[in-house]
Nucleic acid binder design. Structure first.
Lengths: 82, 82
DNA sequence: TGGGATTTGTTCGTATGTATC
DNA sequence: TGATACATACGAACAAATCCC
């Protein structure tokens, strides 16, 4: 699995889609920690800025929650307020 | 206070003028921090590029100084070298 | 109590591409 | 052609929260 800079789809959206699929398929279960920013940077050879934009997307979609100093986690029922 | 895209005056110059007035009237005193790029982006619904162009104008006029990782500040006497 | 490592939060610096006027 | 404006992407610095020893 890799990301392309030669795509019409921005890299940060490609990464968001990739993580979204892991969540949808249960590879990342509710409450599970998502990879840290630095690990995603290293794994895909992208900048922190791009990683964070991808996380922004997932948070807006309600799929992830982030805690400063800890990390990001797949949303659980208690994280949802709807 | 808002900015218009339907003006002969570019948005970045409108923003520069708006901040210049705040400085002139003392709303923003010497040494005071100016709003961050992201807050100005959000407040006026404009891009970072446009915000930065406005700050360029203020710096050229000697009204503001900018420090990476910190922010921009209204010029004080010690900031001036003339 | 303290210090270091890890992680996220926020800020500015720079470059490139695209679209519009 | 050039100025304006937005989006994307990578860097760099500083700040704050967490965790562990």
């Amino acid at each position: 699995v890799s990301l392309s800079h030669d795509s019409a789809v921005p890299v940060y959206r490609q990464l968001a889609g990739l993580l979204r699929k892991r969540i949808a398929t249960g590879v990342l279960a509710p409450g599970a920690p998502l990879p840290s920013e630095s690990s995603l940077m290293g794994e895909y050879g992208i900048s922190r800025d791009t990683v964070r934009k991808a996380m922004d997307v997932l948070r807006e979609e309600g799929l992830a929650v982030t805690v400063q100093g800890k990390g990001s986690y797949v949303t659980t029922s208690v994280d949802s307020q709807g």
